[in-house]
Design a protein around this nucleic acid. Structure first.
Lengths: 234, 234
DNA sequence: CGAACAATTGATCCTCATCAAACCTTGTGG
DNA sequence: CCACAAGGTTTGATGAGGATCAATTGTTCG
């Protein structure tokens, strides 16, 4: 199923690109579809391609020498990933990209984008904005991990997920589809703790939970918790 | 004391800039000197200027709404900081920059660099490389904080500091000048824990400690600890 | 010398990770 | 349509790792 070049505008980096440039990109792109659990690339691979997810969902994760893993972020449709290779020659991916469900992505040669950026400052600025966004998010998450308690971090993780991929259901409720395990990885804890915290919140009618499902009833209360203004003393 | 434009080449971002460009930058730059403990800018201020530290040492830190602080990185001579404003219009600094000792920096208007980058792709790439470096470091530190024990993190922090600002003293020893408190902030723990760990290492003759001073005798052992290959079972 | 700051050390407590066991939910095949 | 398997979830018991607090001991400098 061919991609319409215009759709690439939905990618922030290409927002201000000309129609011709978009067409060029699509012509050069290879479509790659993979199944749930498979990988787009591994940490350490030469960063030959950058990817644009056009359907499905994926996660970026990092592994240490000792084999411990950490989730960096979740990738949704029309998000760019694996783009660091366009900056440095002979770079390798600093993270692994794994599909959370069957997914399709456009693969574009890093060197091609690099070339285009030589003559298109807008493109460079787009990519830089993407990067500054990452930097700020990583800084914020680092601070959270360093200074906040699990409950706060889980609350924050949920709020972030609501913003990027929440589905509005009846009433004001917003629903998320995630296993406890995934939620735990995202917020840097264990599935046991996530389970306990969610049970707790359910008793307070802040959320409703189900198998692979969290429905948020009172987002405002979550914000309170995330900010550390926990009213356990009420 | 005027800055020689050529010296700007020591800043990675300007490595490939022309002599004329460097001259332009210096002409546009304002020199700012501040005392230990004072601030170059605060988190949330409009990011009007970007800075190049030309003498002294500073730290970048982030504060949450609840007032909790975290160190992001230490800035040494000829490092750029506060540059995110050159990318986004009307950006605000995402962190606070405080001098660790009396320091002098060149301040350049963000908009000026932005303008220069419009016609100088090399400059954009330089800045992007700087950013990818941050991203990777933040990702690595995030993973460390999430998966590693304090002892490992302190070891890593020391090794990082050795690489960027270690001073070789007699023998193979390398000396660092830091209070326990600073070391604690960098590695995300408390000064008490740092003190205990250092005492422990001193017993094993891995380091020698003193007031505001850590001398590393066996860097290799520190690497072992950082990698989690702790031989407590020896 | 004394004040201010840095570091050490011990005692205690709290948060979470870990492990084990049982319970739900969903889908599949006989 | 039931039974069973597989994966997801809950809950309890336990323990380790550090944070926190308090008291003392260096160290430096005016």
């Amino acid at each position: 199923m061919p991609v319409n070049p215009i759709d690439l505008r939905r990618v922030h980096v290409f927002e201000k690109a000309t129609d011709d440039d978009l067409k060029l990109l699509v012509q050069r792109a290879i479509e790659r579809s993979i199944e749930e659990g498979e990988f787009f690339f591994f940490q350490g691979d030469p960063a030959t391609y950058l990817y644009i997810l056009i359907s499905g969902r994926a996660k970026l994760m990092q592994t240490s020498k000792a084999g411990q893993q950490v989730n960096l972020r979740t990738i949704n449709e029309w998000q760019l990933f694996g783009a660091l290779g366009a900056v440095r020659e002979q770079a390798t991916y600093p993270a692994t990209a794994q599909a959370l469900e069957s997914s399709t992505a456009l693969a574009i040669e890093s060197s091609f984008l690099h070339e285009m950026m030589q003559t298109r400052p807008q493109l460079s600025f787009g990519l830089m904005q993407l990067m500054t966004g990452y930097i700020q998010e990583m800084q914020a998450r680092y601070r959270e991990l360093a200074t906040e308690k699990v409950e706060q971090r889980i609350a924050r993780a949920l709020l972030r997920l609501v913003a990027t991929m929440g589905v509005r259901v009846e009433g004001n409720a917003v629903e998320l589809t995630f296993t406890r395990q995934q939620l735990a990885e995202i917020s840097g804890t264990t599935l046991f703790t996530v389970s306990r915290v969610l049970s707790d919140w359910e008793k307070q009618a802040i959320v409703e939970t189900g198998r692979e499902k969290v429905r948020i009833l009172k987002p405002h209360d979550l914000v309170q918790i995330a900010e550390g203004l926990n009213k356990k003393d009420g």
